[in-house]
Every structure is written in structure tokens, then in C-alpha cells.
């Protein structure tokens, strides 16, 4: 059994948002509702402003709070691969998983559009789905949260389950530079131009991701929550730092 995980090297990430765009294309995300996003933060006031960015996919936690709070088991931990997935057929749209996720990576599908015009109205669906985009991926598996979402459910990043789950058994790392494996690499990892993202099996001691976590002292975001993310950040040994909104506001006050 693999336990897929991601490593993101913050020293290499340029904040180009190619990962966000690739995810949006791969998974038909609505504009502004990005399963994968690069968040920008600023501290200070002009001319002493510091701009920072932080890539943030779903953490596919080992001990996910979203899974434990779901009253219908619609969101679950896939035993073969460690993905945290959604079963749209069971979701009742109570949004408790959204409330319980410390990383803000879940999206209720029927909220107001973030970007106007509402593209769902431009390409309406006649099959009960949220919308019918002119291009959409051929994969459709509502029991794993793959494909265009139906109404009234919560959606989230699947770690590109539809690609990763087809990888040859026993592979330690899914590297886009290896031609025979590149089709199985998650979209956000595959397009990362500065090669800041890596994807591999955390259960294989010799996998490249495990070596990087050990060598560069990889850290997990908000580890104090006990969620145990399967996404690790490399930041030169420092904590993966996201400025708190409180510190932003304090420094803005000067």
C-alpha cells in the first residue's frame, strides 16, 4: 500500500501560479475557487513592504479532521494510497468538513461565484451537474470526487487520484522527468517550472520525497492540530511560515 505525499520546496517556489492553473484545467475548477492555490501575503506598509507567497494544496492528512467530523462518511481516507476523497453520492452539504479543515481547502459548490460573470450560468448543465464546461476531463467518478460536481456538495483536491492511482505498483516517486511515469504525476507537480514540487510514496524509505524530508528537514503545516499532513514543506529547517493575519494588521498599524 502506498502512502502518497508531496514535498514543496519553498526556496524554489516562485509563486508563478502554474500549479494553480494546471489544477484548474485538469479539474475544471471555477475561477477563483482553486483546489490548489498559491497564497500571497504582505507585511508592512509602503515603502517597507515584504511580499510572500505560499503554495497550498489539500494536505491529504494522515489523521484528517474533515474525515472524522463527516456525519455520513462522505469524505474518507482511501486505504490504498492515503488520498482524502469525497463521495458526492453521500455528501449532504452540511459543510462541517469545511469548518473542521484547518487549511481552508474545501469548497461548497453552490456558493456565489467569486469571479463574474458566473461561468456556471454561461455553460449551464442539463444533467444535474454544477455546469457543463466546453472542455472537461474524461474522468468521472463521483464516488471519489472526480469530474464535474453535482449540486449541494463539498469539493476538494484529489491529489489527481485519476492519474496517480494508475501508476505502476511499487513505484517510489512520480517524477515528471521520467518519461514513462509523467502521465501519472499530479497536474500541479508536473507543470512546476522551477521544480519546487515532488510527489512520491512516503511509506518507501528510499523514495526521493522521504530523502528530501530527512535531508532538508521537511516540516508539516500546523502540525499542532494533529492532522498530520502528507504534504511537507522544505524551508531551510525553519517552520513553514505563513504570516498570521493578526501580525499583518499589527505591522500595518506601524
Amino acid at each position: 500500500m502506498a502512502k502518497w505525499g508531496m514535498v514543496i520546496d519553498l526556496d524554489k517556489c516562485t509563486g508563478c501560479q502554474a500549479c494553480t492553473t494546471a489544477c484548474a484545467m485538469e479539474n475544471n475548477r471555477l475561477p477563483g475557487e482553486n483546489w490548489q492555490d498559491v497564497l500571497f501575503y504582505h507585511e508592512g506598509t509602503y515603502p517597507n513592504v515584504k511580499l510572500m507567497w505560499f503554495p497550498r494544496p489539500c494536505m491529504h492528512c494522515e489523521n484528517p479532521s474533515c474525515v472524522s467530523v463527516c456525519p455520513t462518511k462522505a469524505t474518507y481516507k482511501d486505504p490504498d494510497g492515503g488520498f482524502v476523497l469525497m463521495d458526492y453520492n453521500k455528501c449532504i452539504g452540511c459543510k462541517y468538513c469545511q469548518v473542521a479543515c484547518p487549511y481552508g481547502v474545501r469548497f461548497y459548490v453552490d456558493e456565489k461565484a467569486v469571479v463574474q460573470p458566473d461561468i456556471r450560468g454561461v455553460f449551464p448543465s442539463e444533467t444535474g451537474r454544477q455546469w457543463d464546461p466546453p472542455y472537461k476531463g474524461p474522468q468521472d467518478d463521483p464516488s471519489r470526487g472526480i469530474g464535474i460536481q453535482p449540486h449541494g456538495v463539498v469539493s476538494k483536491c484529489t491529489f489527481c487520484y485519476h492519474k496517480v492511482s494508475k501508476a505502476p505498483k511499487g513505484v517510489a516517486d512520480l517524477d515528471e522527468d521520467i518519461p514513462e511515469l509523467k502521465e501519472y504525476v499530479p497536474a500541479c507537480v508536473r507543470v512546476c517550472a522551477p521544480k519546487a514540487r515532488f510527489f512520491g510514496d512516503l511509506d518507501q524509505p528510499n523514495s526521493n520525497v522521504n530523502k528530501m524530508i530527512a535531508d532538508k528537514r521537511g516540516v508539516r503545516l500546523k502540525d499542532e492540530t494533529g492532522n498530520k499532513p502528507q504534504v511537507y514543506y522544505l524551508s531551510g529547517g525553519a517552520t513553514a511560515s505563513v504570516p498570521s493575519l493578526r501580525s499583518m494588521s499589527d505591522s500595518d498599524k506601524g
Binding site: 472524522s68 467530523v69 455520513t72 449532504i92 449540486h151 456538495v153
Partner: peptide
């Protein structure tokens, strides 16, 4: 308010989601 209120009527009781406070609440 729920996205699927009718589904909730059967999906919650038969989920046996013992780890969820909402399951126990219902």
C-alpha cells in the same frame, strides 16, 4: 440550508459515523 436534506435523513443514521459529533447529535 443543507445541500441534500432528503439524503441526510438516511445517510446520517446509516453511516455509523461514530467519530462525528454531528452523527451523535442527529
Amino acid at each position: 440550508e443543507l445541500g441534500h436534506p432528503l439524503r441526510a435523513l438516511w445517510a446520517i443514521p446509516f453511516s455509523f459515523a461514530f467519530s462525528s459529533p454531528l452523527y451523535w447529535k442527529v
